[in-house]
């Protein structure tokens, strides 16, 4: 066996001291609705969904902000430089694409694997930007027994941000699944079902009363989505 040159030995020692870069991992993603087709809202109204289609795109998970981000107010406000010496983005996990999710489907949707980086997770976000982003139709039975049909087509181009997910990703022990669940019940929880049918078309739509505000508000509400990692 030939003797190792001292310099090569020294370099090998130095290289062996090398810290490892943050690892990456792939996590299968599952999208699904979280509610049954019929549910009772907090106001006692029973909602039956006949159609519930949600168009989602670009799911991202983010690391928690850290001191190292150093986005502090600076007395050096306007010193300029070129890129490359910067802080990188917060995103730690990403699956790009656009998916039409039937919230009433039992099986949900498996859009693929998210590419993730090791480390802590704090929040997630997903974009709603189709025309329409949400298509909900069904019938609501009020507490008094009155039945009213509804059809909401929500046109949006907005990110739902800040969906909580407290977890730590480890490339050596990757989670089995990343679940994103959307709750139509929560999306509709701000709706006032006694709203007058102003356009007299026999349907509650976004044109009627405050539904044009409350339904879109519910759709982009962080509470309407949950993120979970299955071990």
């Amino acid at each position: 066996m030939s003797r190792m040159h001292p310099c090569a030995w020294a370099l090998a020692v130095l290289a062996s001291c090398s810290p490892e870069s943050r690892g990456s991992l792939q996590i299968p993603v599952h999208l699904a609705g979280s509610d049954p087709a019929t549910f009772v809202g907090s106001d006692g109204a029973e909602v039956r969904l006949d159609r519930a289609l949600l168009v989602l795109s670009d799911l991202r998970l983010e690391s928690p902000p850290t001191v190292a981000r150093l986005r502090l107010p600076s007395p050096l406000r306007s010193a300029w430089a070129h890129p490359g010496h910067d802080f990188s983005g917060d995103t730690a996990c990403e699956l790009l694409g656009t998916w039409e999710l039937d919230l009433l489907s039992d099986s949900g949707l498996d859009p693929g694997n998210a590419t993730c980086l090791e480390g802590d997770l704090a929040t997630g976000r997903v974009r709603l930007s189709a025309e329409p982003a949400l298509d909900l139709a069904g019938e609501v039975t009020l507490e008094g027994g009155e039945k009213r049909s509804f059809h909401f087509e929500v046109f949006l181009d907005e990110e739902v941000a800040g969906i909580p997910i407290e977890a730590r990703l480890d490339a050596d022990a990757p989670p089995a699944l990343l679940d994103l669940a959307a709750s139509p019940a929560t999306m509709l929880s701000w709706s006032d079902w006694s709203t007058e049918d102003e356009d007299q078309d026999g349907l509650l739509t976004l044109s009627d009363g405050a539904l044009g505000n409350t339904v879109p508000f519910g759709v982009v509400s962080t509470a309407s989505f949950t993120l979970d990692l299955d071990e």
């Binding site: 502090l72 107010p73 050096l76 306007s78």
Partner: peptide
Amino acid sequence: EIVFDHAAARFLSSG
């Protein structure tokens, strides 16, 4: 310390 932020194209103070 001052550190460059390419998004803002400016230095940030990092203490």
